[in-house]
Amino acid sequence: MFSFEGVRSGYGRTEVLHGIDLEVPDDGVTTVLGHNGAGKTTLLKTVMGLLPVRSGRITWDGEDITRLSAHQRVRMGLAWVPQGQKSFGSLTTRENLLVVAEAHPGGKERLDGVLDLFPALGELMDRRAGLLSGGQRQQLSIARALLTGPRLLVLDEPSEGIQPSVVQEIEEKIVGLASRSGTQVLLAEQKVGFALEAADRYAVLATGRIVRSGLADEAAVDAAREALAV
């Protein structure tokens, strides 16, 4: 169980998250919904240790990880797919994958499996990541995250700026991954349809506070839309 207990966080002097309580269970997909500026990216960056916690604490399986650096959390099994298909643009696809694989025990052994999951990347190994399309960069971003052998995969708006057919493919991969390997998924999205189709549980974030949460069943779509409309 990954837990936020009264977490406050933000940038510089600006506080964006105002006391977040959130639990991500050990299996399935948990999605955080919210409009632009609601604090989704801030929440995920705080999960990853990229933003400091001002008060409150973050625990994972009972262990307090509030003060751990990002790379220490990744070594523990957290993996991040950032918003905007970010990659190491001047490195080739191969180098993007290798630099992560080399930083993790067993990373190189996972390379073939990851390329099986995203076969398109196999044909783009010598191309600079900065020259890939948005969809290809998103696949590379997820592939990089999977090379770390994650227990909790954190995805920040993976559908943003990507054509619908690729969004569908990415959603299938995420759901398949969560069910097959037992990897926890924490997904931030503003597209309610995409997010709830993939999710088992949801939470709605508005102006830095969780305003609704529950199981992602049929009633959740209306409940989430209602909460987002407020």
Partner: peptide, 9 residues
């Protein structure tokens, strides 16, 4: 940021 969040110190 991306390097840190990829497990690179």
């Amino acid at each position: 940021e991306l390097a840190e969040a990829s497990g690179i110190s």
